[in-house]
Design a binder for these strands. Structure first.
Length: 308
DNA sequence: CGCCTTTGACCTGCGC
DNA sequence: GCGCAGGTCAAAGGCG
């Protein structure tokens, strides 16, 4: 692959979790999703995905979201499990939304491998992720460090706003121009102390209506309840906290943005931006349908949270 | 005043 | 070794 195409789709370099991991992300038992990995609950979709992950994933999307995986409207079924196979190219070019999860073995970035100088700087600053960084530096090879990288989850959302409200508070700490793209990439860090979750937000070069968000790490705290303009979102999560980066919520919210009239909306409020919020009527209709019930079965933790 | 964004500089890893 | 690109820092300034 040429450098150009590699850079253009650096997003794909997030090496993906297996579908098993993907579907076992905090959807089932968020509270057990500690820093050392996920502990699957008794309820898991993993079995469904073992034989034919791609087909199973398509099936899930079709059943839960009422969309055809081949549709150019909503999801692409590709969930690249391990390889750096150039799937994103196809996805970005032809479909607006895609879900991908990463286990953080990307070669593209290596935070935590700091020089002594910059580490001293950070020790003074006292960022949330500092302890992590320092501990990583002690007694571990680079390979081991790579393996211990925080899990990543990335997804694409059709949205007019870059920074989607997800219930957490984020502070922007950087912005970089992306090669071969006119749109910059923004870097955000969770503002909660000792929470080193980060996210990157960039707009797809090929489809400017698509925002690519990548979460890295897992929140170690409950959702803030006094978010500006997103109290509804916070309320949605308040019973527990989702990790990493509220993946499943975002995943399905993405679908809501891209599935038009049949939007899946389970009470999410898109802050004051508003432009991507789903139609409340669609919400009602959805809840009455079998799709809602199916989703409820598949991702029980999401729906448990909704009950007062 | 506290929190946030902006932005240029700096650091690091990777490919050649 | 060098250059490039991604990622991060931190000072400065804005805003409520």
């Amino acid at each position: 692959m040429s450098n150009e195409s590699k850079d253009l789709y650096s997003y794909q370099y997030l090496s993906s979790l297996s579908l098993y991991e993907l579907m076992n992300l905090p959807t089932s038992t968020p509270s057990s999703y500690g820093n050392n990995g996920f502990v699957p609950s008794s309820y898991s979709l993993a079995d469904c995905f073992q034989s034919s992950p791609g087909a199973a994933y398509d099936s899930l999307l079709h059943k839960t979201l009422g969309v055809s995986p081949s549709s150019s409207e909503v999801f692409n079924s590709l969930v690249d499990q391990e390889s750096k196979h150039d799937v994103t190219n196809d996805v970005i070019g032809e479909t607006p939304t895609r879900v991908s999860a990463s286990s953080s073995s990307s070669e593209a970035d290596h935070p935590g491998e700091d020089s002594g100088k910059s580490q001293r700087k950070r020790e003074l600053v006292g960022y949330g992720g500092e302890e992590n960084r320092i501990s990583k530096k002690v007694g571990k090879t680079k390979k081991e460090e790579k393996k211990q990288r925080e899990p990543r989850v990335s997804f694409m959302t059709k949205s007019e706003v870059d920074h989607l409200e997800d219930g957490y508070r984020w502070r922007k700490y950087g912005q970089k121009a992306v090669k071969n793209s006119i749109y910059p990439r923004s870097y955000y860090r969770c503002t909660t102390q000792r929470c080193n979750v980060k996210k990157r937000v960039e707009r797809s070069f090929q489809d400017p209506t698509v925002v690519i968000t990548t979460y890295e790490g897992q929140h170690n705290h409950p959702l803030p309840t006094n978010l500006r303009g997103s109290s509804a979102a916070a309320a949605m999560y308040s019973a527990d906290f989702m990790t990493p980066g509220s993946f499943t919520h975002d995943m399905f919210r993405s679908s809501a943005y891209t599935s038009g009239g049949s939007a899946l909306d389970y009470g999410y409020e898109q802050s004051s931006y508003g432009s991507v919020n789903a139609n409340p009527n669609a919400h009602q209709e959805y809840r009455q349908g079998g799709e809602y019930e199916l989703l409820k079965e598949i991702f029980p933790s999401i729906f448990f949270k909704q009950e007062p």
